[in-house]
Amino acid sequence: MANLEKNAISIQNLSLSLGNKQILNNLSVEIKSNQVTALLGPNGAGKSSLLKCLSRELSVPKNTQLKYFEHSITDWPKNLLPQHLAVLAQQSSLTFAFTVQEVIELGLLPLNLSTKQAKKVVRENMVKVGVENLADRLYPTLSGGEKQRVHLARVLTQLNQSKDKTILMLDEPTSALDLAHQHNTLKLAKQLAYEGAAVIIVLHDLNLAAQYADRVLVLADGEIKADGTPWNALTSNMIEKVYGQKTLIEKHPISDYPVIHAA
């Protein structure tokens, strides 16, 4: 756990507007390794935009400082970053009839592996997300949830083999999944964080966040409204202010995390 408490990402003074609308308002945040950070907030709060800035899908404004592992983005060699930063999008536009195995192999692009190593890595990640029995299926014939898991295996594949200095960003990874797969995916995220990765997950379900996140960031109107452990950040007061919904919060009967009920 050499990365403990180290900043995996730090961004300072991020403001973003699209057209006339201010999406993010002078926002600064640090994301730590060894943690699952859940990014919450109502629709239109700027969650996806923040994630896009953090992953450099949207280029950040000039006066914003973005660092990965204490190194400014300009210091990172372009071809090295994909081995350290992987992003799972909400949906992909892939329409061609690749097999599942071939889709996951697309994740090998940033790596320089021998054929034998590559096979092993792809296989491992298929097993990790539970799609090994789909290997020969054609991608367009999969269900939405299966597709999502295949892409998760793909983005895991692109990370460097020593798992050193890794960031994983998941944009609503559970939206297309059934109950069991939702929990499997978040358990896997938790496991990766335990192994050292900085994991950021955009979620809509507060209870999933409460159960799996080490840290919760609540975003509204382009600002961070709450930041802390689920118990500290997810208070009735805060939820009512941000979502306009009254809630009751109690401790899970067996484990120690909050359970949020709409009141």
Binding site: K52, E57, A89, S93, L106, L109, P110
Partner: peptide, 11 residues
């Protein structure tokens, strides 16, 4: 083929 953003994330 995955999309421009995804290709960008793959370097």
């Amino acid at each position: 083929l995955l999309g421009e953003a995804e290709a960008g994330h793959l370097g």
